[in-house]
Computed example of a mutant assay.
Amino acid sequence: MKKVAYSLLVFAVIVSVISCKNETKSNDASEVSEETNELALAEKETETTPEFMYVTASSGLTLREHNNLNSEKMGVMPYGTKVKVITPETEETMTVGGLKGGMHQVEFNQKTGYAFNGYLSKFFPPEEDLKAKIYAEDLKAQFLDVSFNETSGGTASKPTNTEILSLPTDNWHEAFYIAAELFDIPKSFAFPNPKGSPEETVKENNPKSGTWTSQLTVNRKDNTLEKINYEYRAKGFGYEVTITKEGNMMKLERTEKVE
């Protein structure tokens, strides 16, 4: 009997120890899981609402006292200005120039006010004459989904070169302003309004000397942009820039041709 009782006591102790270990592992796993979820949420929030954004309006963006377009003007933030986002507006409360958005509360030049977020981008603007490949590498340090590739084709007498930059955004205006700076779309072409005819072609009013063709073609469906294409032609040379949306990415493509 004593042996049986002793065996039962040993068995109970072993079961208790194993149970404690399993509970500890379970608690540890739960804590790790919660920490992982919190980190994931934090990263998602950071991607959705960056702390700093950049002005994409070519003529500058107005800083206003309150979060409406009739509010008093406090100043104008030039194109490319880096502003700090204090309180983001997540709802689309207004439309400006065909762009839907709201008024972010931002800080600029030691002033706090409101600015229309349709003309703000999380991507810093390309510097003048910066190569697309270098810009992509700079962006990738902050946005891992950025991709760039370059291919050559055509013939020996008529070679072609294609550069493709993919950006992790579904914002057409962000893509357009970067393409305009990086791939030489003339400043006279404003961002096209998403509303309009299924296809529209606009020619440059005062093209530089020697230009044969300089035009922007916009394709729409149900008042939504589907493709933006810029075409330039001159004697012996030409290029096209195409902007399209692929899932949650924007694809910017430039092809040069020797003719």
Score class of each variant (00 low, 15 high):
residue 1 M to H: 10
residue 5 A to R: 15
residue 10 V to F: 13
residue 11 F to R: 10
residue 11 F to S: 14
residue 15 V to A: 15
residue 18 I to H: 05
residue 22 N to C: 09
residue 25 K to D: 13
residue 25 K to L: 15
residue 26 S to W: 09
residue 30 S to A: 15
residue 34 E to W: 09
residue 35 E to I: 13
residue 39 L to E: 14
residue 40 A to Q: 14
residue 40 A to S: 15
residue 40 A to K: 14
residue 40 A to C: 09
residue 45 E to L: 14
residue 45 E to W: 04
residue 47 E to V: 12
residue 48 T to F: 09
residue 55 V to F: 03
residue 65 E to Y: 11
residue 73 K to W: 08
residue 75 G to H: 06
residue 76 V to F: 02
residue 77 M to N: 03
residue 79 Y to H: 13
residue 85 V to S: 03
residue 86 I to D: 01
residue 87 T to L: 00
residue 101 G to P: 09
residue 102 G to C: 03
residue 106 V to A: 05
residue 106 V to M: 06
residue 109 N to Q: 14
residue 111 K to D: 11
residue 115 A to L: 10
residue 122 K to T: 08
residue 125 P to E: 03
residue 126 P to D: 07
residue 130 L to F: 04
residue 132 A to Y: 02
residue 134 I to S: 11
residue 137 E to Q: 15
residue 139 L to F: 07
residue 140 K to R: 13
residue 145 D to N: 10
residue 145 D to K: 14
residue 151 T to N: 09
residue 155 T to H: 07
residue 156 A to N: 13
residue 161 N to W: 08
residue 166 S to W: 01
residue 169 T to Y: 00
residue 169 T to E: 00
residue 174 E to S: 13
residue 174 E to K: 06
residue 174 E to C: 05
residue 177 Y to C: 02
residue 177 Y to H: 05
residue 181 E to N: 07
residue 181 E to G: 06
residue 185 I to G: 01
residue 185 I to R: 03
residue 186 P to V: 05
residue 188 S to Y: 01
residue 188 S to W: 02
residue 191 F to M: 05
residue 192 P to S: 00
residue 193 N to C: 05
residue 194 P to M: 04
residue 195 K to A: 12
residue 196 G to L: 02
residue 196 G to C: 02
residue 197 S to V: 10
residue 197 S to L: 11
residue 199 E to V: 14
residue 202 V to L: 12
residue 202 V to C: 01
residue 208 K to W: 11
residue 208 K to Q: 15
residue 233 R to H: 13
residue 235 K to S: 14
residue 239 Y to A: 05
residue 247 G to R: 07
residue 247 G to L: 05
residue 248 N to F: 03
residue 249 M to H: 12
residue 257 K to N: 11
